[in-house]
Structure formats: structure tokens, C-alpha cells
Amino acid sequence: MQDYVQNLADNTLILGQRLAEWCGLGPFLEEDLALTNTCLDIIGQAKMLLEFAAELKEGNETADDLAFMRDQHEFKNVILVEQPNGDYSQTMLRQYFMDVYHVHLYQALSTSTNQKLAGIAAKSLKEVVYHLERSELWIKRMALGTDESFQRVQASLDKLWHYHHELFEETESLTELVKQGIAADPNVLKQLWLKDVNALLASTPLEIPQKGWKATGGRKGHHSEYLGLMLCEMQFLQRAYPNSEW
């Protein structure tokens, strides 16, 4: 159970931190505000999930300890969310993948037999539905825009597609949680995710790469080279000046 919540928490924390890197650098002011507002919602979700993850650990660790004092191998997020921002098409495609995932995940979890998880999910669902409207619009706009924008979003799709598999990985402990009605069924989520993503892509000239590999390992703490570098920056202050407060 702790492992499951930790995965959900880390997905939001790392995605939120990546989005925060855009703060002040957005392509235009309204977009900068939109992306950082999305970031704020996701960090808020991370806070709720990390507090729950800390509670489940039954130790003395707080949500902040989990965010700032763990090392790379202790993070359980999928490798997709730690991928660099790249250009705007890469950021928005990663966001779109995660938005579709989060909408179906939170929808399913809002009826979880675990009351706490159900509460967090119902709260977060309202936010991610709004995020999805925007990221979906961006993918369409870029795919149907100029040659340049199309090529960029196609290149991002070629790069990021292989990472989505990890969102729906099954493990024995997860299967058990699904049986108990606590967790969302990854197979159901995968079908819903593929249906939505395929429908959007079909409305554009974008093509899904046919061959490829499947990213795996993040949920076991095996990450890409990018996570460590991100943590160096994200955790610096708490590592250098432990327990310092705002």
C-alpha cells in the first residue's frame, strides 16, 4: 500500500518540479501563468499524497522528509515524468500523457475503498480535467499547425511514446490492492488511456512509432540519468541547511 501511494505521490512531485522549471520562461505571459498554475495544482496533489505516504510509513518522516531527504533510488515515479522539458511540444506531450492518465486514475480512485485515497482523488480529479482540456488543445494546435510545429510534436511523440507503458505495469502487490478495491486496475486504465490518446492522435497527422522499446524500472527505483540531476537542484537547500524553513 505504501509503495502504491509513494508511486502516485512521486509521479506528481517530479512532474510538478519539472513544470516549475518553466516558471518565468514560458513562450508568452498567459502561457507561463497557465503552466505554473497547472504546476501548483500538481504540487498540491503531491503534498496530499506525500502526507498520506508518510502516514503509511508509520515512522517519524514527514511529507517534506520524503520529498527532500530521499535519494534517487528511493523515488518510485515512472521515468516519463523525470524526462527533461525539451521544447514546448515535449513538455506538452508529456503533460498530455499524464493528464489523460491522471483523469482516469483519479476517476477510478474516487470510489476506492480507502477513504483517504478516495478523498484525495475526488479533489484532484476536478483539477486534472481542466489541465487535460488545455494540453489536448496544445497537441492539436501543434500537430495541425505549421510544418515546424508538426515535426516537433512528432519528434516528441517518437521520443516519449515508449515511456507510457510503465504507467500501467502490474505487480503482485498492485493486483492484491486492486482485488481489495483500493487501487485502480492498471489494465482498465491502459485501455481507457489508449482509447483517448489514439482518438486524439487520429484527428491529427501524427503517427505512433511502430517499433520500440518499453521503459521500465522507475517504480523499483531504477531511474534515468535525469532524475539525479533534478534532485540535486530540488533538494539542495534542505540538504545544505537541514530543517530550514521559508
Binding site: 498567459e30 501563468l33 497557465a34 498554475n37 497547472t38 501548483l40 481542466y130
Partner: peptide
């Protein structure tokens, strides 16, 4: 609509 997001998370512009 100018932007789906405004000066705070709860507002659009």
C-alpha cells in the same frame, strides 16, 4: 477568453 488560467489557480482571464 484570453487564457484558461489567470492570476490565481481559481481564475481564468
Amino acid at each position: 477568453l484570453i487564457s484558461q488560467f489567470g492570476s490565481t489557480a481559481c481564475k481564468a482571464l
